[in-house]
Amino acid sequence: MRRFYEGGFQPSMTRREAALILGIRESTPADKVREAHRKVMVANHPDAGGSHYLASKINEAKDVLLGKTKSGGSAF
């Protein structure tokens, strides 16, 4: 069994953390990022008993990897 990662989420998301959240590499192409995002989102969708917090993290991870937001540009 692998060791679990320590602690909570990082205060501002980096590309590295985003890749870890979606379970892919930082260099993964955009279409594969979207595919991975869909898969992880299905597992954590708030409508199906998932948490809103994780869902927002997953969405943020996709945005960071697709370069839609500059990393650390979260409003919160």
């Binding site: 679990f4 379970g23 299905v42 954590n44």
Partner: peptide, 20 residues
């Protein structure tokens, strides 16, 4: 439920966060 689901289709990182 969350741990199991993320084991199947999610990522190890998210599973870690749920465990912590």
């Amino acid at each position: 439920t969350l741990f199991e689901r993320n084991g199947k289709m999610g990522s190890f990182y998210l599973q870690s966060k749920i465990h912590r």
